[in-house]
Design a protein around this nucleic acid. Sequence first.
DNA 1: CAAATAAAAGACTCTTTTATCTTAAATTAA
DNA 2: TTAATTTAAGATAAAAGAGTCTTTTATTTG
Lengths: 145, 145
Amino acid sequence: MFISKSCSYGIRSVAYLSGYPQGRYVPIRDISSDLNISYHFLTKILQMLTAANILISSRGAGGGVALAREAAAITLYDLIIAIDGDELFTGCLLRLPGCGTKTPCPMHQEWDVARGKVNHFCCHTSVTGLKQHMLLLAANPASDL
Amino acid sequence: MFISKSCSYGIRSVAYLSGYPQGRYVPIRDISSDLNISYHFLTKILQMLTAANILISSRGAGGGVALAREAAAITLYDLIIAIDGDELFTGCLLRLPGCGTKTPCPMHQEWDVARGKVNHFCCHTSVTGLKQHMLLLAANPASDL
DNA sequence: CAAATAAAAGACTCTTTTATCTTAAATTAA
DNA sequence: TTAATTTAAGATAAAAGAGTCTTTTATTTG
Ligand code: SF4
Ligand code: SF4
Protein backbone atom coordinates (compact mmCIF):
# COMPACT_ATOMS: atom_id res chain seq x y z
CA MET A 1 0.00 0.00 0.00
CA PHE A 2 1.53 3.21 -1.11
CA ILE A 3 -0.90 5.54 0.61
CA SER A 4 -3.22 5.40 3.62
CA LYS A 5 -6.98 5.30 3.28
CA SER A 6 -7.12 8.82 4.73
CA CYS A 7 -4.79 9.98 2.00
CA SER A 8 -6.96 8.33 -0.62
CA TYR A 9 -9.94 10.25 0.72
CA GLY A 10 -8.01 13.51 0.59
CA ILE A 11 -6.94 12.94 -3.00
CA ARG A 12 -10.46 12.02 -4.05
CA SER A 13 -11.81 15.17 -2.44
CA VAL A 14 -9.36 17.42 -4.25
CA ALA A 15 -10.20 15.68 -7.52
CA TYR A 16 -13.85 16.29 -6.74
CA LEU A 17 -13.23 19.96 -6.04
CA SER A 18 -11.31 20.30 -9.29
CA GLY A 19 -14.69 20.08 -11.01
CA TYR A 20 -15.64 23.47 -9.53
CA PRO A 21 -14.26 26.92 -10.25
CA GLN A 22 -11.21 27.54 -8.09
CA GLY A 23 -12.07 29.30 -4.84
CA ARG A 24 -15.71 28.24 -4.95
CA TYR A 25 -16.76 26.86 -1.57
CA VAL A 26 -18.33 23.40 -1.54
CA PRO A 27 -19.80 21.94 1.68
CA ILE A 28 -17.90 18.91 2.97
CA ARG A 29 -21.28 17.25 3.34
CA ASP A 30 -21.69 17.30 -0.45
CA ILE A 31 -18.26 15.80 -1.03
CA SER A 32 -18.77 13.07 1.52
CA SER A 33 -22.15 12.03 0.21
CA ASP A 34 -21.12 12.06 -3.44
CA LEU A 35 -17.95 10.08 -2.74
CA ASN A 36 -19.43 7.81 -0.05
CA ILE A 37 -16.97 8.89 2.62
CA SER A 38 -17.87 9.35 6.29
CA TYR A 39 -18.61 13.04 6.76
CA HIS A 40 -16.94 13.64 10.12
CA PHE A 41 -13.92 11.60 9.19
CA LEU A 42 -13.53 13.50 5.96
CA THR A 43 -13.78 16.76 7.87
CA LYS A 44 -10.67 15.89 9.83
CA ILE A 45 -8.74 14.92 6.73
CA LEU A 46 -9.66 18.08 4.87
CA GLN A 47 -8.56 20.07 7.89
CA MET A 48 -5.09 18.70 7.25
CA LEU A 49 -5.25 19.96 3.69
CA THR A 50 -6.46 23.34 4.91
CA ALA A 51 -3.58 23.49 7.39
CA ALA A 52 -1.24 22.70 4.48
CA ASN A 53 -2.69 25.61 2.46
CA ILE A 54 -3.98 23.31 -0.22
CA LEU A 55 -7.58 24.12 0.64
CA ILE A 56 -9.24 27.14 2.15
CA SER A 57 -12.35 26.85 4.27
CA SER A 58 -15.26 29.01 5.36
CA ARG A 59 -17.79 28.34 8.08
CA GLY A 60 -21.45 29.15 7.98
CA ALA A 61 -24.04 29.33 5.28
CA GLY A 62 -22.52 29.40 1.83
CA GLY A 63 -19.29 28.10 3.24
CA GLY A 64 -17.39 24.88 2.76
CA VAL A 65 -13.95 24.08 1.42
CA ALA A 66 -12.37 25.24 -1.80
CA LEU A 67 -9.12 24.79 -3.67
CA ALA A 68 -6.58 27.35 -2.55
CA ARG A 69 -4.94 27.32 -5.98
CA GLU A 70 -5.74 25.90 -9.39
CA ALA A 71 -6.12 22.14 -9.43
CA ALA A 72 -3.32 21.68 -11.95
CA ALA A 73 -0.93 23.20 -9.42
CA ILE A 74 -1.78 20.63 -6.73
CA THR A 75 0.27 17.48 -7.11
CA LEU A 76 -0.10 14.02 -5.65
CA TYR A 77 3.14 14.74 -3.85
CA ASP A 78 1.62 17.76 -2.10
CA LEU A 79 -1.37 15.71 -0.97
CA ILE A 80 0.58 12.68 0.19
CA ILE A 81 3.04 14.84 2.14
CA ALA A 82 0.19 16.74 3.80
CA ILE A 83 -1.66 13.63 4.94
CA ASP A 84 0.80 10.73 5.17
CA GLY A 85 4.02 12.67 5.66
CA ASP A 86 7.28 12.10 3.82
CA GLU A 87 7.88 8.48 4.82
CA LEU A 88 6.94 7.20 1.36
CA PHE A 89 9.39 9.52 -0.36
CA THR A 90 12.33 9.42 2.00
CA GLY A 91 12.02 6.53 4.46
CA CYS A 92 13.85 3.21 4.31
CA LEU A 93 12.25 0.68 1.97
CA LEU A 94 12.90 -2.05 4.52
CA ARG A 95 11.68 0.11 7.40
CA LEU A 96 14.94 -0.43 9.18
CA PRO A 97 14.86 2.02 12.04
CA GLY A 98 17.90 4.20 12.49
CA CYS A 99 19.25 3.92 8.97
CA GLY A 100 20.30 7.35 7.89
CA THR A 101 21.95 6.06 4.71
CA LYS A 102 25.32 7.38 5.81
CA THR A 103 26.40 3.76 5.45
CA PRO A 104 24.06 2.63 2.68
CA CYS A 105 23.19 -1.03 2.30
CA PRO A 106 23.87 -2.86 -0.99
CA MET A 107 20.40 -2.20 -2.33
CA HIS A 108 20.04 1.45 -1.42
CA GLN A 109 21.33 3.07 -4.58
CA GLU A 110 19.21 1.07 -6.98
CA TRP A 111 16.21 1.54 -4.76
CA ASP A 112 16.75 5.26 -4.83
CA VAL A 113 16.56 5.15 -8.62
CA ALA A 114 13.30 3.19 -8.63
CA ARG A 115 11.77 5.36 -5.96
CA GLY A 116 12.98 8.43 -7.82
CA LYS A 117 10.59 7.44 -10.60
CA VAL A 118 7.72 7.26 -8.14
CA ASN A 119 8.68 10.59 -6.62
CA HIS A 120 8.93 12.20 -10.04
CA PHE A 121 5.55 10.84 -11.02
CA CYS A 122 3.92 12.14 -7.84
CA CYS A 123 5.57 15.55 -8.21
CA HIS A 124 4.37 15.95 -11.79
CA THR A 125 0.87 14.52 -11.55
CA SER A 126 -2.18 16.52 -10.56
CA VAL A 127 -5.67 15.23 -10.01
CA THR A 128 -7.29 17.14 -12.84
CA GLY A 129 -9.40 14.96 -15.07
CA LEU A 130 -9.92 12.36 -12.37
CA LYS A 131 -13.35 13.46 -11.25
CA GLN A 132 -15.40 11.69 -13.91
CA HIS A 133 -13.57 8.42 -13.34
CA MET A 134 -14.10 8.65 -9.60
CA LEU A 135 -17.78 9.45 -9.77
CA LEU A 136 -18.23 6.55 -12.16
CA LEU A 137 -16.61 4.22 -9.66
CA ALA A 138 -18.54 5.68 -6.74
CA ALA A 139 -21.77 5.13 -8.64
CA ASN A 140 -20.90 1.55 -9.62
CA PRO A 141 -19.30 0.03 -6.53
CA ALA A 142 -17.44 -3.24 -7.07
CA SER A 143 -18.33 -3.24 -10.75
CA ASP A 144 -14.68 -3.74 -11.63
CA LEU A 145 -14.49 -1.13 -14.36
CA MET B 1 4.90 3.05 3.58
CA PHE B 2 5.67 0.50 0.92
CA ILE B 3 5.66 -2.57 3.15
CA SER B 4 4.11 -3.59 6.46
CA LYS B 5 6.13 -4.03 9.59
CA SER B 6 5.50 -7.77 9.40
CA CYS B 7 6.99 -7.80 5.92
CA SER B 8 10.01 -5.90 7.15
CA TYR B 9 10.54 -8.57 9.79
CA GLY B 10 10.26 -11.32 7.20
CA ILE B 11 12.80 -9.67 4.92
CA ARG B 12 15.19 -9.11 7.80
CA SER B 13 14.91 -12.75 8.79
CA VAL B 14 15.70 -14.01 5.32
CA ALA B 15 18.66 -11.66 5.14
CA TYR B 16 19.78 -13.04 8.48
CA LEU B 17 19.45 -16.62 7.27
CA SER B 18 21.44 -15.79 4.16
CA GLY B 19 24.49 -15.72 6.43
CA TYR B 20 24.15 -19.46 6.99
CA PRO B 21 24.67 -22.35 4.60
CA GLN B 22 21.47 -22.97 2.65
CA GLY B 23 19.30 -25.63 4.28
CA ARG B 24 20.92 -25.19 7.69
CA TYR B 25 18.24 -24.93 10.38
CA VAL B 26 18.42 -21.90 12.66
CA PRO B 27 16.04 -21.58 15.65
CA ILE B 28 13.58 -18.70 15.33
CA ARG B 29 14.59 -17.80 18.88
CA ASP B 30 18.08 -16.97 17.64
CA ILE B 31 16.77 -14.81 14.80
CA SER B 32 14.36 -12.94 17.05
CA SER B 33 16.92 -12.20 19.72
CA ASP B 34 19.64 -11.11 17.29
CA LEU B 35 17.26 -8.86 15.35
CA ASN B 36 15.26 -7.64 18.36
CA ILE B 37 11.96 -8.94 17.05
CA SER B 38 9.27 -10.48 19.24
CA TYR B 39 9.75 -14.24 19.10
CA HIS B 40 6.13 -15.36 18.91
CA PHE B 41 5.21 -12.66 16.44
CA LEU B 42 8.12 -13.59 14.24
CA THR B 43 7.05 -17.23 14.39
CA LYS B 44 3.76 -16.36 12.72
CA ILE B 45 5.45 -14.33 10.01
CA LEU B 46 7.99 -17.02 9.21
CA GLN B 47 5.14 -19.52 8.98
CA MET B 48 3.87 -17.48 6.05
CA LEU B 49 7.25 -17.80 4.38
CA THR B 50 7.26 -21.52 5.04
CA ALA B 51 3.78 -21.82 3.53
CA ALA B 52 5.12 -19.94 0.50
CA ASN B 53 7.99 -22.43 0.13
CA ILE B 54 10.58 -19.75 0.76
CA LEU B 55 11.64 -21.34 4.04
CA ILE B 56 11.55 -24.89 5.29
CA SER B 57 11.08 -25.67 8.96
CA SER B 58 11.80 -28.50 11.35
CA ARG B 59 10.48 -29.00 14.85
CA GLY B 60 12.35 -30.40 17.75
CA ALA B 61 15.95 -30.33 18.88
CA GLY B 62 18.28 -29.22 16.13
CA GLY B 63 15.37 -27.77 14.22
CA GLY B 64 14.43 -24.27 13.23
CA VAL B 65 13.88 -22.58 9.91
CA ALA B 66 16.15 -22.60 6.88
CA LEU B 67 16.22 -21.15 3.40
CA ALA B 68 14.44 -23.45 0.97
CA ARG B 69 16.69 -22.25 -1.87
CA GLU B 70 19.80 -20.15 -2.21
CA ALA B 71 19.43 -16.63 -0.89
CA ALA B 72 20.25 -15.09 -4.26
CA ALA B 73 17.16 -16.79 -5.69
CA ILE B 74 14.83 -15.18 -3.15
CA THR B 75 13.71 -11.73 -4.26
CA LEU B 76 12.08 -8.87 -2.41
CA TYR B 77 9.11 -9.49 -4.68
CA ASP B 78 8.76 -13.07 -3.40
CA LEU B 79 8.86 -11.91 0.20
CA ILE B 80 6.45 -9.01 -0.21
CA ILE B 81 3.95 -11.15 -2.10
CA ALA B 82 4.14 -13.86 0.56
CA ILE B 83 3.53 -11.50 3.48
CA ASP B 84 1.73 -8.40 2.21
CA GLY B 85 0.09 -9.84 -0.88
CA ASP B 86 0.08 -8.30 -4.34
CA GLU B 87 -1.63 -5.03 -3.49
CA LEU B 88 1.62 -3.05 -3.81
CA PHE B 89 2.35 -4.42 -7.26
CA THR B 90 -1.08 -4.48 -8.83
CA GLY B 91 -3.54 -2.45 -6.76
CA CYS B 92 -4.81 1.03 -7.54
CA LEU B 93 -2.44 3.81 -6.47
CA LEU B 94 -5.41 5.84 -5.24
CA ARG B 95 -6.97 2.83 -3.53
CA LEU B 96 -10.15 3.38 -5.48
CA PRO B 97 -12.20 0.27 -4.84
CA GLY B 98 -13.62 -1.44 -7.87
CA CYS B 99 -11.24 -0.02 -10.44
CA GLY B 100 -10.20 -2.85 -12.70
CA THR B 101 -8.43 -0.50 -15.14
CA LYS B 102 -10.73 -1.54 -17.94
CA THR B 103 -11.55 2.16 -18.12
CA PRO B 104 -8.24 3.61 -16.95
CA CYS B 105 -8.11 7.05 -15.41
CA PRO B 106 -5.86 9.76 -16.92
CA MET B 107 -2.98 8.95 -14.61
CA HIS B 108 -3.00 5.19 -14.89
CA GLN B 109 -0.59 4.67 -17.75
CA GLU B 110 2.16 6.89 -16.39
CA TRP B 111 1.70 5.38 -12.98
CA ASP B 112 2.13 1.93 -14.43
CA VAL B 113 5.48 3.01 -15.82
CA ALA B 114 6.69 4.36 -12.48
CA ARG B 115 5.44 1.36 -10.59
CA GLY B 116 6.99 -0.90 -13.22
CA LYS B 117 10.37 0.39 -12.05
CA VAL B 118 9.53 -0.54 -8.48
CA ASN B 119 8.28 -3.96 -9.55
CA HIS B 120 11.40 -4.56 -11.63
CA PHE B 121 13.61 -3.55 -8.74
CA CYS B 122 11.81 -5.87 -6.32
CA CYS B 123 11.90 -8.76 -8.80
CA HIS B 124 15.64 -8.39 -9.35
CA THR B 125 16.83 -7.68 -5.84
CA SER B 126 17.70 -10.34 -3.32
CA VAL B 127 18.63 -9.82 0.28
CA THR B 128 22.15 -11.19 0.01
CA GLY B 129 24.72 -8.86 1.48
CA LEU B 130 22.23 -7.17 3.74
CA LYS B 131 23.00 -9.09 6.91
CA GLN B 132 26.00 -7.05 8.02
CA HIS B 133 24.16 -3.77 7.55
CA MET B 134 21.19 -5.06 9.52
CA LEU B 135 23.18 -6.38 12.44
CA LEU B 136 25.01 -3.08 12.56
CA LEU B 137 21.72 -1.23 12.84
CA ALA B 138 20.31 -3.70 15.35
CA ALA B 139 23.39 -3.23 17.51
CA ASN B 140 23.31 0.57 17.28
CA PRO B 141 19.65 1.49 17.57
CA ALA B 142 18.77 5.07 16.64
CA SER B 143 22.37 5.85 15.83
CA ASP B 144 21.30 7.16 12.43
CA LEU B 145 23.99 5.42 10.43
C1' DC C 1 10.40 -44.51 26.93
C1' DA C 2 11.32 -39.94 29.09
C1' DA C 3 13.06 -35.46 28.73
C1' DA C 4 14.39 -31.62 26.20
C1' DT C 5 13.86 -28.80 22.15
C1' DA C 6 11.55 -26.06 18.88
C1' DA C 7 7.77 -24.98 15.49
C1' DA C 8 2.58 -24.63 15.16
C1' DA C 9 -1.60 -23.02 16.84
C1' DG C 10 -4.75 -20.39 19.52
C1' DA C 11 -6.24 -16.91 22.91
C1' DC C 12 -5.52 -12.61 24.39
C1' DT C 13 -3.70 -7.60 24.86
C1' DC C 14 -2.00 -3.22 23.12
C1' DT C 15 -1.62 0.32 19.56
C1' DT C 16 -2.81 2.66 15.40
C1' DT C 17 -6.01 3.60 11.96
C1' DT C 18 -10.52 4.33 10.59
C1' DA C 19 -15.17 5.66 11.70
C1' DT C 20 -19.05 7.68 14.46
C1' DC C 21 -21.23 10.89 17.49
C1' DT C 22 -21.65 15.16 20.16
C1' DT C 23 -20.69 19.88 21.17
C1' DA C 24 -18.60 24.38 20.11
C1' DA C 25 -17.48 28.28 17.24
C1' DA C 26 -17.94 31.09 13.20
C1' DT C 27 -20.57 32.96 9.41
C1' DT C 28 -24.61 34.22 6.83
C1' DA C 29 -29.33 35.57 6.14
C1' DA C 30 -33.80 36.90 7.54
C1' DT D 1 -30.79 39.49 17.02
C1' DT D 2 -32.37 35.04 16.06
C1' DA D 3 -32.16 31.01 13.32
C1' DA D 4 -29.90 28.30 10.04
C1' DT D 5 -25.72 26.70 8.11
C1' DT D 6 -21.26 24.81 8.13
C1' DT D 7 -16.39 24.05 9.75
C1' DA D 8 -13.67 22.92 14.06
C1' DA D 9 -12.85 20.26 17.94
C1' DG D 10 -13.33 16.54 21.16
C1' DA D 11 -14.91 12.13 22.94
C1' DT D 12 -15.93 7.50 21.94
C1' DA D 13 -16.09 3.14 19.29
C1' DA D 14 -14.97 -0.32 15.83
C1' DA D 15 -11.44 -2.55 12.91
C1' DA D 16 -6.97 -3.73 11.69
C1' DG D 17 -2.16 -4.29 12.73
C1' DA D 18 1.33 -5.50 16.00
C1' DG D 19 2.88 -7.86 20.04
C1' DT D 20 2.47 -11.24 24.16
C1' DC D 21 1.41 -15.46 26.42
C1' DT D 22 -0.04 -20.35 26.80
C1' DT D 23 -0.86 -24.85 24.99
C1' DT D 24 -0.17 -28.38 21.54
C1' DT D 25 2.43 -31.14 18.32
C1' DA D 26 6.51 -32.92 16.23
C1' DT D 27 11.39 -34.20 16.60
C1' DT D 28 15.74 -35.40 18.63
C1' DT D 29 18.62 -37.17 22.27
C1' DG D 30 19.78 -39.99 26.02
S1 SF4 E 1 20.68 1.95 3.04
FE1 SF4 E 1 19.35 0.12 2.95
S2 SF4 E 1 18.64 -0.08 5.06
FE2 SF4 E 1 19.43 2.03 4.87
S3 SF4 E 1 17.67 3.32 4.26
FE3 SF4 E 1 18.63 2.61 2.35
S4 SF4 E 1 17.49 0.74 1.84
FE4 SF4 E 1 17.07 1.15 4.00
S1 SF4 F 1 -7.08 3.62 -13.69
FE1 SF4 F 1 -6.68 5.17 -12.08
S2 SF4 F 1 -8.21 4.70 -10.53
FE2 SF4 F 1 -8.07 2.86 -11.84
S3 SF4 F 1 -6.49 1.54 -10.92
FE3 SF4 F 1 -5.40 2.86 -12.37
S4 SF4 F 1 -4.74 4.58 -11.09
FE4 SF4 F 1 -6.37 3.56 -9.95
